[in-house]
């Protein structure tokens, strides 16, 4: 348990789950949850590399910044989704199709 590889496996699994969520889910909020999983898988990588690689603290610092950015991003994204819901009565990203692809 206490080795780098375990953490890398966990983060890779988390990354894949996030990717799967973003690609398959059509609900805007579910897609955002997938993005959060991807961000956190990167965080696990950073902290694990910093802890086991015998490196300085930049990994932990990076992870802290990512947590802050993720919070800011979630706030903006949820505000946008609420606004879309007010106007279009849906949070499904496929229903927002006024602009043709």
């Amino acid at each position: 348990m206490d080795n780098l590889q375990t953490y890398l496996y966990i983060s890779a699994i988390l990354f894949s789950l996030g990717l799967y969520g973003v690609i398959t889910r059509r609900n805007g909020i579910a897609v955002l949850m997938g993005v959060e999983l991807i961000l956190n898988s990167a965080n696990i990588n950073f902290v694990a590399f910093a802890r086991f690689g015998g490196m300085n603290f930049s990994g932990q610092v990076f992870a802290l910044f990512v947590i802050i950015m993720a919070a800011a991003e979630a706030a903006v994204a949820l505000a946008i989704i609420i606004n879309v819901f007010n106007n279009l009565d849906t949070v499904n990203i496929d229903d927002a199709r006024e602009l043709k692809l």
């Binding site: 805007g28 946008i80 989704i81 606004n83 879309v84 279009l88 927002a96 199709r97 006024e98």
Partner: peptide, 12 residues
């Protein structure tokens, strides 16, 4: 609504 949709797609 068009502007809303633009920002939704952009943020995702």
């Amino acid at each position: 609504p068009r502007s809303n949709e633009a920002s939704l797609k952009y943020v995702i």
